[in-house]
Structure formats: structure tokens, C-alpha cells
Design a protein around this nucleic acid. Sequence first.
DNA 1: ACCTGAACACCGTTCAAGT
DNA 2: ACCTGAACACCGTTCAAGT
Lengths: 221, 221
Amino acid sequence: MARTSQRAPLTADRVLQAALALVDRDGVDELSMRKLAKELGFEVMSLYNHVANKDEVLAGIADLVAAEIEPPEAAPKRRGKAAWKAGIRHTVLSARDAFHRHPWVVPIWPAVASGPHRLRFMEALLRSLRTAGFAPADAYHGYHALMMHVLGFTLQEQRFDFGEGGVVAAASRFLDQFEGEEFPYLIEHMHQHVDAPTHQDDFEVVLDILLDGLDRLRGPG
Amino acid sequence: MARTSQRAPLTADRVLQAALALVDRDGVDELSMRKLAKELGFEVMSLYNHVANKDEVLAGIADLVAAEIEPPEAAPKRRGKAAWKAGIRHTVLSARDAFHRHPWVVPIWPAVASGPHRLRFMEALLRSLRTAGFAPADAYHGYHALMMHVLGFTLQEQRFDFGEGGVVAAASRFLDQFEGEEFPYLIEHMHQHVDAPTHQDDFEVVLDILLDGLDRLRGPG
DNA sequence: ACCTGAACACCGTTCAAGT
DNA sequence: ACCTGAACACCGTTCAAGT
């Protein structure tokens, strides 16, 4: 019967999948152990047989997002002075896509524990840089520059996602209180945001600045 | 008497200052209206005579952080092909310092409403870029690249601030479960983090990559 | 105008009890 | 081994009552 499948035994996996669905749908602020249990058709305390606590749930769903990131190609097909860029570019864009699909993960990303998928992604990106010829110190800079760009970009971008509470609405509400002449450049900037609903190009322009800059750091090769 | 000064009448300002002190001391997760009221020597509901709700408190203290950011110099002293960089560099480093002093603000930065200080900072940074000769579209990219760098960097950096819960401890705990050979590059990276307790140089290396890249975007001048 | 107490609708998590 | 109910120590916020 439907009820039997509804009550398939709880597993850590089912808990995390349900949490991911809930958070993708309602946002991370709406996740509570009680709601999650209700969604699964169990009582709250049943969850604690499969996950230690709420932090573990958050770390778990963050790692499900990490699992969606495609690692850089291990063996690039074409060789050339900047062949390394293609693989890195691919994985960074993939990370951007994953964060874009699950924007709630960005603010909690630094706070939650790193799971296996995330550690494997970090390893793959670092290996890519090092085998491309970056010295350890430059791979260190490159890794951070790229990750910060992805995280920072998505963090920034979120502000424009919610209609009423978004920065555009809030700022224009605020700007109304001032003479129209006090913030001309900010107003110009807001219009650019409103006019460009997707910021993919914006993301890639800066990504290419970073990749070119890193290439120069790497030295002639 | 001491009691009188302790019970100086509540104001929105006093509420925000106490909230900032509490959050700087204990972290943003520890902020509750009840604790905040107790800290001030009033009952919870008294706060609501001066602030609308908790979101307004968060927006208020975020704007206090924004107030600490020094705007770019309006009139740079020395002229030259990249004179614009000095002013921008100054304000970006100042923003990095402010976020570094108040790291809890980074994850909530995109979620809270923009206050007057933040809007003035945004305006000043955008004006700097535009008057340096950037076309509107390039000022748009430059603004985001710089802000993302600051936000992303501080977000990333936070992970290494808390001893036990930090990524180093968590990752090394996790890595213990694997053969030591599976994550050689990640282990190298972790050591670099542990060896460099401050990431100021790291921040500036990438900042200069961005500034140089933006300068090229701006075209010959 | 400002402060307060009780109340409501929530949280995460512990612990003892069931099967 | 897994599920549950009651209980504890918290939340933010509404509302009516005080001064």
C-alpha cells in the first residue's frame, strides 16, 4: 500500500535527501528537525537514530551540493601554453552552477564540516593547479582566488533573487528618502542589475581576469 | 547612582551598540532579543519600542560595520596611468579590515537590508571607478569583482578561525580515515594554511591580480 | 511615550519508555 | 535496532496592561 512505501524505513540517506528537497524549496531558514520529520512521515526524534544533530544534516546536504560539482578533466586533450585553463574553467563554472542551483549553501559553506565529496573536489582542483606547473605558494593563491570568486559571486548575486526583500527594492525604498542626486552612480548600478537578470557573463569576465592573472603569476611556460 | 546610569533611557542607538558588542564577543548565533535586553538591563519587550524586530537589529549592526569602511580618496594626489588604483586599493583594504574585525557580518551581509553607511560606501566605490575612466559596464564588473573578493575571502578565511570546529581540525579528522596518499595536495594546502596564520599577503596578491586585470579592461589611458 | 508580564507558536535535544 | 512521547531550556513576537 501507499502507506508502506511512505513508511519505508528511515536511513541517513533518506533524511538528507528530504532535507535537501525542503531547503531547495523553502530556503535554509525553514529547515527544522520537526518539519523534516513531518515531511518524512516520522516523529522528530526518529531522525536522531540516523543523524547526530542538525549540524550534521546541514553538513550532509552541503556535501550533496559538493557532489554536483564536476572535477576538472584529469587529462586535457589539447596542449598549449594555457591548456590548463580549460579544465579549471570547467570545474569553476560547474561549481558556480551548483551554487546557483542551491544558493542557500553559500552562507553556510564556511561554517559546516567538509564532507567527502567536498574534500575530493578540493583535492582535484589543487592537483589541477599543481600539475599545471604552479608552485605550491601560487597554487595556494590560485585556489583561493577561484573559490572566493565563486562563493563571493553567488553570495552577492543572491541579494537580487528575492523580489520584495531584495536589495533593489530595499535600496530604491531607501533612495526615495534622499534627493535623487546623492547616489547617481548607485542608481546607475541598480539599473544595470535590473536590466541583466542573469549574471553569467559578469561571472565569466572576472573569472577570465583571474585566470589570465594567475597565468602570468605562473610564469612563462 | 550606578543604577541610574545603568538605566539610562533606551534608544535605538544604545540597542544597536549593545548588539554589536554582544555579537563581536559571542558571535551572531548567540544574539537573541532576550539576551540583548538582559545585557542592557531591560525586559525583552522594551527593545521593541526602539527597533522593529530582530532583522532590523541585524541590519543596524551590519551598517555599523559599513560605517567603519574608509571610502576611496576623493582626490588622489599623484597622477599617472594607474593613479586610480591607490584610492580603490585603500578602500578595499579598509573593507577587508572591517570584515576581518567583524567576521560574523559576512554571511549575513547579503541577507540584511542596506543601511545609509553601506549605500554611501557603494556610491563612493562606484564613483571612483567611473571617474577613473571605466565605462558603465566595466565599472559594473569591477565593482563586483572587488566586493566578491573581499566577501569571499573573509568568508573563506573564517573557516580557519575556530580551533576545534575549524576546517583544519575537521579535515584532518576526516583524512585520518583514509590512506594518507589519497589527498596529497589537500594535505599540502592545509599545511600552508596552518603555517600562515594571517592571510593578508594572500588577499593582496589576488587583489593586485584583479586591479591589474581591471586596468587592462579599462583600456589604454 | 515607554516599560512590562503573560501568552503563543515555535525551536533543538535529552531521556525514559516502548516494540 | 529503531521509533516515540513527554519534558527542558530556549526562541521571536503579539497583545493588553501598567506608568
